[in-house]
Write a protein that binds this DNA or RNA. Structure first.
Lengths: 361, 361
DNA sequence: CTTTGCAATGCACACGTGTGCATAAGGACT
DNA sequence: AGTCCTTATGCACACGTGTGCATTGCAAAG
């Protein structure tokens, strides 16, 4: 009853030839005479033939398939990356399997195993953190892999990566604040993305170090690391982190804050509004990511733009190059500061206050 | 050199049995004696065997694969749907192919054909509009398909759907404004999503009709339909639409506006701020979608929540049921109003003005 | 007219897995 | 001891496609 789709064997029967002839004719092989070739192609068209890629892949050992691992599907950061991946994969006639891990290392290995079963030609990993367990696994299965915003500790031949320069981004943000005249600049970080948080914190520190001695410890606000993998509500939690930690920085008398990302910045903005603090008059705030709605916040958010789509483009292109046997180089993309209206020079009273403070040290 | 992965034949050789025995042993067939079974399973483990799903699918004619078509990958609406899809597909051990069409009907048929080649077991279509061309194609290839927020015109046996009740959502929004005392309520629509725009417009109209005669034509602002498929910048364009059309509604002296979606509402908010109009004191604004950042806008946006993730869940569950041969029913999900701070009773002066206006007619 | 060469096609096998059926071995029963 | 049944395994084939090699037919060259 569920009539099987037509195969090349069916076409062969109808055309009175053997199935290899059909196979070759459809692939435009010069071995087949021109008239037979076109006759078969027309016949295939008429019979509604659709090649079975499963069988093709089995034979050719090429599935023309990519596996994409992301931490969370709903997160705008990853969706932009996904978009970048699809943009490149599609024209190259590659299909892509999508899977999320939600920062659960068990799911991580499960996803990798699934991709391995499906015989994907390559794997893209856009995961916040990647367990050493699955990194080891990845390098063992010998499937070309490109990590996105995640450097490989091992497996140099198999694991490649492309990432955005977090350190530079943080420096740009901090230098922007310095240039506006701020000297008491706080950092508002997150607990659950250790790598990028560390990089951004270091970038912030190095920018500050260029103009003077280190500030008090109170200028750096970090929530305690969580226990279980939370994954899911991470982004929402980011807003809460910003809201929760703002008072701490205010108490340290900073005049500007560099936030780990835009969602944290949004949380900080909310907390400011709740306390009647006017941004940027009383306090300057810089985010990171340049989310779609950043221009539409109140005030429009100054932030560091990450080339997310480009990240996906590049990673996928690297992967395709690897599959074609070309040598590839790991890449670092440059972020850019986007100055909007959440930053301004510090208020006069604050400035004097700070400079006097500085004088006492 | 690129050593082939181990197959059941390899295991069979190592164990001194035939490959069907290995196949059965790994599938826990009762035909195989317990000791041989465990011996083979252990051996498979040791040899690092990973089944080849391509070969399995070829044989069983089940790829355990779903195809997901979306209009745009970066759009938060679709990403939430995608998340819902993945949530259900994964535990059922289905992998999902992701593809975007960007509202291009050529890409649409290309995507469908790719899925057909890959022998996906089912297809999910979350597309803004779906060309009758590809709808016909979908119903012809007999692959179980579920449309998301898109009703099928044809192919009753093959095409099923699940959607959110746009009409109801619009009515809820409009009734909320009516209840606050507004009578001059505008609608701010979009040109490029004909179906949902029409539904929401009708819902808005029916709510108004329940309390009096139709308002002036000026209360309804619709940009002219675009020419080419734009897809890509649609969301950004939504903000621009809101900004561009607000003056028109202000000129019509409305005291409240129901916007097609939250991005349009954001545009309207921006335009208000630019003109010194204070929301909700001078004007109430309601959106649609309840995007993640809606609570963090200034003011926090009153909007209609769409159960996007649930939409994906449900559609996928329907598809899996179809694959298992169960009968399924098309579903309509209910939206819900989320009252925040962008709506309030109209200002006294406005109210009197309107009632006098009403009196003159 | 035979030989050589080339063009076009078919044969056989491979890819890795699943399954109906035959077969072999062994035990229980008459 | 022979028959029958059960249990465990192997054989053969199927899924749909691609490809090396042999084969066929035909024309050109000797």
């Amino acid at each position: 009853m569920p009539q099987r789709p037509v195969s090349i064997a069916d076409i062969a029967r109808a055309a009175g030839v053997s199935h290899p002839t059909v196979s070759r004719a459809l692939r435009d092989s010069p071995l087949i005479s021109a008239d037979v070739r076109t006759r078969i192609q027309i016949l295939a068209q008429e019979m509604g033939y659709t090649p079975n890629s499963l069988a093709q892949s089995l034979q050719t050992r090429r599935s023309h398939t990519l596996g994409l691992v992301v931490t969370s599907i709903a997160d705008p950061f990853f969706t932009d990356v996904m978009k970048g991946v699809e943009e490149v994969a599609r024209p190259a006639r590659f299909s892509v399997f999508l899977s999320a891990t939600y920062n659960d290392s068990e799911q991580e290995v499960a996803v990798i195993e699934t991709f391995q079963r499906r015989r994907v030609d390559g794997i893209l990993v856009a995961s916040l953190r990647i367990s050493s367990n699955s990194e080891e696994r990845l390098s063992r299965i010998k499937v070309p892999t490109v990590l996105i915003n995640n450097e490989a500790n091992s497996g140099g031949q198999v694991l490649h990566w492309v990432m955005v320069d977090d350190h530079l981004g943080a420096r740009l943000a901090t230098e922007h604040l310095l240039q506006l005249g701020h000297r008491a600049i706080g950092y508002l970080g997150v607990p659950n993305r250790p790598r990028s948080n560390r990089q951004r914190l270091e970038g912030y520190r190095s920018a500050l170090a260029a103009v003077g001695p280190a500030g008090p410890a109170g200028w750096i606000a970090l929530p305690p690391p969580p226990g279980a993998p939370e994954g899911e509500g991470a982004r929402l939690a980011d807003v809460a982190v910003g809201q929760a930690l703002l008072p701490q920085l205010l108490a340290a008398r900073v005049t500007a804050i560099f936030c780990f990302n835009d969602m944290v910045a949004v949380g900080a903005l909310m907390a400011c509004r709740a306390r009647g603090i006017v941004v940027p008059r009383d306090l300057s705030i810089v985010g990171f990511d340049d989310i779609e709605l950043a221009p539409y916040m109140t005030p429009p958010l100054t932030t560091v733009h990450q080339p997310r789509v480009q990240l996906g483009n590049l990673a996928t292109q690297m992967l395709l190059d690897l599959l074609d046997g070309y040598p590839v180089q790991n890449q670092i993309l440059l972020p850019a500061l986007v100055a909007r209206s959440s930053t301004a020079p510090p208020r006069a009273e604050f400035t004097t206050q700070i400079s006097s403070e500085e004088g006492t040290r």
